[in-house]
Nucleic acid binder design. Sequence first.
RNA 1: GGAGGAAUGGCGGAGUGGUCGAACGCACCGGUCUUGAAAACCGGAGACCCUUCACGGGGUCCGGGGGUUCGAAUCCCUCUUCCUCCGCCA
Length: 423
Amino acid sequence: MLLIKEIRERRESIKERLRKRAFRDTDLIDEIINLDDKRRKIKAELDDLLNKTKTRSKEIGDLYKSGKREEAEQKKKEMASLKDEVKALEDEFRKVELRIADTLERIPNLPHESVPPGTTDADNVIVKEGGSMPSLPDDALTHWDLAAKFDLIRFEEGTKITGSGFPVFSGMGARLQRALVNFFLDRALGAGYHEFSPPLLVNKDSAFATGQLPDKDGQMYYINEDDLYLIPTAEVPLTNLYRDKLLKEEDLPQKLVGYTPCFRREAGSYGKDVRGLNRLHQFDKVEIVQIVHPEKSYDVLEKMMAHVESLLMELELPYRILRLCGGDLGFTSALTFDFEVFSAAQKKWLEVSSVSNFESFQANRLKLRFKDRDGKNQLLHTLNGSALAFPRIIAALLENGQTKDGIEMPAALHPYLGFEKIA
RNA sequence: GGAGGAAUGGCGGAGUGGUCGAACGCACCGGUCUUGAAAACCGGAGACCCUUCACGGGGUCCGGGGGUUCGAAUCCCUCUUCCUCCGCCA
C-alpha cells in the first residue's frame, strides 16, 4: 500500500509511474487526496469538540468534589448536545477513512525506474541466458508422455480423485519431487536462510497484508466455514510472520525459506498452456523471503537472483532471466525478474521463479517497521522469490534429460534421488 | 464442544471509575566515572493522527467492536486469542 503522505507530495509523478504499469484508474489518486483533505478537516473539528468534552468533564468532576452539585448538574445537561455532535462527526470521520482505505487498497505498487515499458509479457526484456540447450531427436517425448511411459505422474487418477490440475506423483516421480524438496531447502540453508514449515491456510488479515486481498480474491481457494484461504504461495505465511513487528536494525536482514504446497484456482486459464505440468491447481514450491533495510533491498534482490540462478545451473537446465515490463508486474511488486527454463520437447520456455522487490508496499500493510539509528520507526522492505517451483522444473528435467535408454538426472540430484537415471 | 481465568508500551509486569499515556524492571539513547569496555550513578525516551516555517498546541490508542457514565485501562455486552480443567478425536 502506498503512503498517503507520498501521494500528496508527488501526485503527478505517481500517476505517471502508475501509467507505466498500465494502471488506468489514475483518477483514484486525485480522489484519495480529496478524501484526505476532507478527513483532515473533520479531524480538526472533531479534536476540537473532543477537547471541549474533556475539559467539561474535568470541570464537572471538580464541581462535585467541591460540593457544587447544582452547577455540576447544569453542566451535565450541556454535555448532552456536545456528545451528539461528537457522535455525528465521528461517524462521518469513520466513513471518510473507510473510503480512503478502500481506494488506497486498489492502487498497485509503483514500478521501479528500471522497469521497462510495455503492457504484456511480450514486452518483457531478456536480461540473461544461460545453460546449454539439449539436442533432442525429432521424436522426443513431452513430459506427459514420459510421465506415462515411466509411471511418474498419473494425471487421470488425480482428475478422478480431485479434478484436473491435481496430479498424482508416483514411484520415481514422487521420489524426484521429494529429492527436489531437500535439494532446494539445503541450498537455501547453505545461503543462510532460516527454514520454516508454515500453515497452508491463512486468515483474511494475512492474505490482505501480503497483497493477495483484495487483488487476488477469487484466485485463492476459500474455506467458507472457517473464513480461511489456502495459500497460493508460501510468501503469504512466511512474510506474515513479521506482521505487526517492530524490529531492531541489528536484526536485519531476516532470511526465511519454506517448502509448501501452493493452491491456485487459476480461474480463466484453459487450452494447451495447461497441458501436463505446465499449470496446476496444486503444486509444490520452495520460497525464499527477505526482510531488509530499505537501503539494501536492491542489493539483496541481486543476491536472491544469484541464488536462484545457481540452482538452475546445478540442475543443468537452459534458462533465461526476464525483467518484467510495467504491464506484467504483479500488484505488489516494484521490480520483478522471472526465471524461465526451456522445456525441450514442448519447445517452450516455462516460468519457474519470480523474484521481486516489494519495497515498503507490503511492509506498510504488515505494519512491519524497524527503529533506525535516530530512534525513528521506518518501514522495512520485503522481497521474495521462488527457489524454485517444482512442476515446470520437473517437466524440463524429464524432457531435457531423455535418452534412448531412460531419463538422465543432473549430478546435483543424485545424492538426493538415490538413483541417476529414470528407466 | 462445556466450565473457569487472562489479554497493558520493543519485552516483562503493576494498575479496578477522574489526579493514568499509564508504576517498576529489562532492553534502548545521552552523560559522569574509566586508557577503553563493563559495572555503578545521573538524565532521556511509547505509537499514530491533526495543526505550526519552527517552538509548541490538540486528539486517539491499555486484544478488536459495541455499550453504561459528565468522565472508562478500570464497569457491562460481544468477538478473537491464550492458559487451566472436562469431553471428543488423531
